[in-house]
Write a protein that binds this DNA or RNA. Sequence first.
DNA 1: TTTTGAGTTGTTCGA
DNA 2: GTCGAACAACTCAAA
Length: 458
Amino acid sequence: MSSVAVVWFRRDLRVHDQPTFLAAADAAPRSLALFVLDPALLGPSGAARRTFLFRALRSLDEALGGRLLVVRGDPVEVVPRVAASVDAGTVHVAADYGPYGTRRDEAVDEALADDGRELVRTGSPYAVAPGRVRKDDGDPYRVFTPFRRAWAEHGWRAPAATDASTVAWLRPPEEDRVAVPADDAVDATLPEASEDAALRRWAAFLDDAVATYGTDRDRPDRAGTSRMSVYLKYGLVHPRSILADLGTRDSPSVESYRTEIAWRDFYADVLHRRPDSARGNYDRSFDALPTASGAAARRTFDAWREGRTGFPVVDAGMRQLREQAWMHNRVRMIVASFLVKDLHLPWWWGARHFMELLVDGDLASNQHGWQWTAGSGTDASPYFRVFNPIAQGERFDPDGDYVRRFVPELRDVPGKQVHQPWTLPGGVPDGYPEPMVDHKAERLAALARFEQVKAARG
DNA sequence: TTTTGAGTTGTTCGA
DNA sequence: GTCGAACAACTCAAA
């Protein structure tokens, strides 16, 4: 038995419910806590996620009594070097199932093995690890509802009873410690980045909004969602803790919250099976879908990104994204539908923009959420399902409060009239644009474009 | 193997 | 204003 183990943190920046702690404590009397600042991941993260990560790391370091070793570099080089420096026999991680993480971990695994050390994977960031839920014939599910059923039947482990003192942490040599970088310049207001904040948020939701989640989650004008996405993203809380806290509570609202956790697992599973679906159509027949391109397409894309499409709920969403590095889920669908079906742009343009700005941006959920809207994703969603941005606004922001909060040009327009400012007696208020397209016409154009996909299917 | 029922989130039109 | 039907065809999952 080795005298030291390494606990390599990645997307699990917490001390409670940490199976890797138990595995490490089992393997060696003392452990070194490590986080690697990997330029390959930091680069594409966007300023909001980088900053949230840095803050979460500072908070974790504090929880570990200032014993988190933070090193910048390529993990394939850094992890074996650090493991060698303390002569660790094992390096403990929660398994990563993303396209990049899978490759990285295989390479680290090999490099460690060359020195006679071992990468030990315990648990994952999911209630049920990708690849575990399968049909009777062993194939993965491609339709959510049966996955959901099998997922619930499969079940999940109870949370691990751990805290910072579960492991005797080695004090890393001062000269090896790299300070967590200073925050990036971020304009958006970010949620507090600590495990404590995550647990407080969760407790507040459990105490109150979960009861009305079934209906209020669709209302961007209300605080009806849990806002746990960013905490799940960085593992400040684990989904199995969440499911355990929900216990056997039985109500449509609780069930629909469980279903959202299942969606997160489902899309991780899908991406794990089809890493190519992060970049291209899951349903390849959609490669035949004509999309807009060239300078005109760039201009419409810019209007969408900046929230000046002339469709209030779309613009409110895009501005919320900039202000809060977050967007309400219902509105994500509305702006996505608008980009794909009204502007005829490729879904991955929008997906990339989301990943750049969202503080909770998760590759699997983001790309597959977009593909669901585009129709190229896992479920056979009816092609004629085109969101009407006016009707959606009136239905889910009935008093217009959400729009007025984020679109100051419309602040004086009362009630739900705010969703159709072009019908005001004085016309569209100063500074706010006319609708950039005729939705009715673009809807028909989108349906017509879909014919190309059908033709490609033969 | 064959068959059958079903598939996150919608819109429009006409009665 | 409300309600139900139509909007296609295909693939999936399970019996």
